[in-house]
Write a protein that binds this DNA or RNA. Structure first.
Length: 911
DNA sequence: ACCGCCGGGTGCC
DNA sequence: ACCGCCGGGTGCC
């Protein structure tokens, strides 16, 4: 497990080097080795203490590692040691070797450790008394079933394990743990204004967050548990001390609730805190700047000298651009000469009336910047914005939207979306960007494959929705940990999902020493906390408090609520089907009921799940509008066809199911499904997850959910660009439906009452949105449409148009339920019409939150249209049941999910 | 003296 | 290491 890094046999020089070299370089290798060993260890959760014994550490004088009284040490097997294959090395927290365990004891320990019967931990209670050896208290930990084997192995060689007196308190600290992230606001001191380039004004709590983030990046306060003792820095948790100031964490966790503006605050940070607390130098589009400055001058908010400097800058830029018109990209030399000219404007401005001393100090500061050192320019000016999403192609786009939205239009910020097959992999190019946005998937796909992102020394890496990478064994997490950067941030609305365990990945990413090495994390935090040790929990709390800022929607600042969202009311409007609609619906319903009833009787519901969902889909579509049904599905029940046709129909059905957005989580990884594929039995998994299952079980592969046979060839992928064919074909044959009329009634009434109110009209069926376009156009509504198929450019355009407050801006947005990521901001709307119920109520909530969020000034009214006596009503009932379940306890387990599905279907069909 | 004793060299694994 | 251990020098009292 560890030998791969210590290859002695093959190379004599390595052998000599590693064991005679006393310089710090070994420490690096050593901590890496410890890290590697620890990473493969199982979690410390289930470990019990077998006993302890006093041992001896020898050979202290050969190594640089020092230890204090009470300090913890690590014990690492060294099977390739040329003098003794049983060697056990002793190292301190920083991974510096301290010595070896005495030979005879090492032999006994090796026999235990090599068979993974126990982990051995050491504490040096007495400290170092002489320079040759010292006593160490060794404690043996492992699984209960290995206890006797360990005790016997040690006893056989003459070592008796004693049970120490201190037993874990065992109190239940679960509740205390739940409150871990509460009351984390004490560390906030003051507010900070964002740099000018940030276009959106920050709210007070966002200025506080910005101030806190800048302080975390710039201030050199000691990390938690460190104190200065004389000339040394001492860690009170591990008792480790060092001459050098401990490496501090530049960054932390911003764990504010959703909707408090984490993204905006982060964008403000990127622009405001570039180098030594100074903002990111960005170029302004001068003509706009001049205009603004002249305005400010007349409002006497801008001095004459400022105005002059801007004017000169403008002049200069025009000349410069004239000279170098064919070359759009600016070289460093050009940038520097530009700055040089800027200095001259300042002089000129000073001559015109600015205070001379003031100007000269300004000049000095700028002069410093004008001659950038390679490290300042070549390495530091770039921020990486890593983000992630369930539907991976959406969120980075919306992140890019957010930059466009929050950065002043006159500021030229180079934001590159590192995504897609044609992404520019040039390190040089990426390094020249101000911000690079990518997804966890792209990052991990590149990892280990000459990844350009891993070859750049970033200034700052921000992990959006950072809780997603909580599993440290995942490739994605490893890829993230391997990024090189000075500053590290994690944005997360839910910092701890299940347990203390999830925190480790976050701390490891932040490089909070020594906890980034799993062994120390386990020993100092995780095990004490899971075993109910109050001090351990206290330490964890201190730790989290130091690096985390978390406010909730109900938090208060200076006695005032952080954000007060306007009231939201949700009402359900029942829709009665017309006589012909009802007849058509009942026909389909009876047919479906018969089919499903047969499946229920045969017990083959899950095996024919795709068919079942397709039937339900048809009914749901009938409820909206009869034309939603794809023409192809009308002949579904018809007689025999060729196998190829059958398969074609099957795929069509599956596509229908997937496109309907019945959002699922993958039962293999238990996370939101990524790269969704659907099986023949209509269960949705991540492609990599199910491919793993199939390759494990080979020919006998069965669906993990219903045990139907599955084949790779039958997996159907999520259709990326679906249903684009028909848009204007049947506009002359357009007909209405009860639901369309219900919506129109509301919209017309609203236009009379208050024409300034903007609406979201939401449906899961993009086809329905298309149907709705006709009557909206006829009644003279101005509207835009946003769905998942639109190009990012078009999306940004549409959002901007809709959000605009101009008189001729669109009043209605036709929105596909799942279009856009969580970041999508549609606060211009205050009225929401949900045209059809979703399987998952949370999806509806999320959609509503796109307008009921920070920045919403008006009361929000939501109307849900539900067709009376239909499958929609049954869906609402099931929604409510699920909501109760979620509120009562945790979600249903995987096993009863199966049965509850069947129950759901029976309820839906009134069987 | 195939011992004992002395005192210098030496020292992790 | 103010130890133990090794091995060479040495040798009545």
């Amino acid at each position: 497990m560890f030998s791969h890094r210590w290859r002695f046999g093959s190379n004599r020089f390595t052998e000599v080097d590693l064991f005679t070299d006393r310089h710090e370089t070994t420490a690096e290798t050593l901590s890496q080795a410890i890290r590697d060993t620890a990473a493969e260890e199982p979690d410390a959760d289930g470990s019990v203490l077998f006993g302890s014994l006093q041992g001896t550490v020898v050979g202290l004088r050969y190594y640089t590692g020092v230890v204090n009284r009470g300090e913890m040490v690590g014990l690492v097997r060294q099977p390739q040691n040329p003098y003794d294959p049983n060697a056990v090395m002793v190292a301190n927290i920083y991974g510096n070797q301290v010595g070896h365990i005495k030979r005879e004891l090492a032999a006994a320990m090796a026999s235990v450790m090599d068979r993974s019967l126990a982990k051995v931990e050491g504490v040096v209670h007495s400290g170092t008394k002489n320079s040759f050896n010292m006593p160490v208290m060794l404690s043996f930990w492992g699984k209960e079933e290995n206890k006797t084997a360990v005790i016997e192995t040690m006893a056989r060689r003459g070592y008796k394990l004693n049970m120490g007196g201190s037993k874990p308190t065992g109190t239940n600290l679960k509740n205390a743990f739940d409150t871990l992230f509460e009351g984390l606001m004490e560390s906030i001191d003051g507010e900070k204004e964002a740099a000018k380039a940030v276009g959106t004004p920050l709210l007070p709590h966002q200025k506080q967050a910005l101030s806190w983030m800048c302080a975390r990046e710039n201030k050199s306060a000691l990390p938690p548990f460190w104190e200065k003792r004389g000339e040394l820095y001492y860690n009170s948790l591990t008792c480790f001390s060092a001459k050098e100031i401990p490496e501090r964490v530049r960054g932390g966790i911003l764990a504010d609730d959703m909707g408090l503006g984490k993204t905006l605050t982060t964008i403000a940070l990127i622009l405001t805190n570039f180098h030594k607390g100074k903002p990111l130098p960005v170029e302004e589009c001068v003509s706009v700047a001049v205009h603004e400055c002249v305005c400010l001058f007349f409002q006497s908010e801008c001095s004459l000298s400022d105005l002059c400097s801007i004017l000169i800058k403008c002049l200069f830029t025009c000349v410069q651009e004239e000279k170098s018109s064919p070359m759009k990209t600016k070289t460093k030399a050009q940038k520097a000469s530009k700055l040089q000219v800027f200095l001259e404007d300042l002089d000129f401005a000073a001559a015109l009336g600015g205070s001379a001393s003031d100007i000269s100090s300004k000049k000095k500061k700028i002069a410093k910047k004008a001659t950038p050192t390679p490290s300042e320019f070549g390495q530091c000016i770039f921020s990486l914005y890593v983000s992630c999403t369930h539907v991976l192609c959406f969120l980075p786009l919306s992140m890019q939207d957010q930059f466009e939205q929050h950065v002043r239009a006159n500021v030229k910020l180079n934001v590159y979306l590192y995504y897609g097959p044609d992404r520019n992999r040039s390190k040089k190019f990426l390094s020249s960007q101000d911000v690079v946005i990518t997804t966890y998937n792209v990052l991990s796909a590149d990892f280990g494959n000459k990844s350009p992102l891993h070859g750049i020394n970033w200034l700052r890496v921000v992990l959006d929705e950072g809780h997603v990478i909580r599993n440290p064994n995942a490739q994605m997490s490893k890829a993230v940990l391997d990024l090189k950067t000075q500053r590290r941030w994690i944005l997360s609305g839910t910092p701890i999902q299940n347990s203390v365990k999830d925190l480790w990945m976050l701390l490891a990413f932040l490089r909070l020493k020594p906890f980034d090495v799993k062994e120390w994390w386990n020993r100092v935090i995780q095990r004490p906390v899971t075993q109910g040790d109050r001090a351990g929990l206290q330490n964890l709390q201190t730790l989290v408090k130091c690096i985390t800022l978390r406010r909730t929607k109900s938090s208060e600042v200076n006695g005032r609520p952080l954000v007060s969202l306007p009231e939201k009311t949700v009402c359900v409007e029942q829709v009665e089907l017309s006589q012909p609609e009802r007849e058509e619906y009942e026909l389909a319903r009876n047919e479906g009921k018969n089919t499903i009833g047969r499946y229920v009787a045969e017990g083959t519901v899950l095996r024919n799940y795709a068919d079942v969902l397709a039937i339900l889909m048809r009914l749901r579509q009938y409820c909206c509008h009869p034309d939603l049904l794809a023409k192809t599905s009308s002949d579904l029940g018809s007689a025999a066809a060729t196998p190829a046709e059958l398969r074609e129909r099957m795929i069509e059905k599956l596509r229908l199911v997937l496109a309907s957005g019945s959002d699922e989580e993958c039962s293999v990884c238990l996370d939101s499904v990524r790269l969704p594929v659907i099986t023949r039995c209509a269960h949705v998994y991540c492609r990599p997850c199910i491919a793993q299952v199939i390759s494990n079980e080979q020919v006998h592969a069965r669906c993990p959910l219903c045990r139907s046979e599955i084949k790779t060839s039958e997996l159907v992928e999520f259709p990326q660009d679906e249903m684009e064919e028909e848009s204007s074909t049947n506009s002359e044959k357009w007909r209405t439906s009860s639901k369309v009329q219900a919506l129109l009634g509301n919209l017309l009434r609203l236009r009379c009452e208050d024409s300034s109110i903007k609406c979201l009209v939401v449906s899961q069926f993009t086809r329905f949105l298309t149907v709705l376009e006709t009557p909206l156009r006829e009644h003279g509504f101005s509207f835009v449409r946003l769905d998942g198929n639109m190009s990012q450019k078009r999306r940004a355009q549409v959002i901007q148009e809709f959000q605009s407050s101009a008189a001729d801006s669109p009043a209605i947005m036709l929105l596909s339920l799942k279009a856009g990521g969580v970041g999508l901001n549609l606060t211009a709307a205050s009225r929401v019409f949900l045209m059809d119920p979703a399987w998952n109520p949370a999806t509806e909530e999320q959609c509503i939150d796109r307008c009921h969020r920070l920045g919403q000034k008006k009361k929000v009214v939501v109307t849900k249209f539900i067709v009376k006596d239909s499958v929609e009503e049954s869906m609402v009932k099931i929604q409510r049941k699920k909501q109760d379940l979620v509120e009562k306890a945790f979600g249903p387990t995987n096993t009863d999910r199966k049965t509850s599905r069947i129950d759901d279907i029976k309820a839906l069909m009134e069987l």
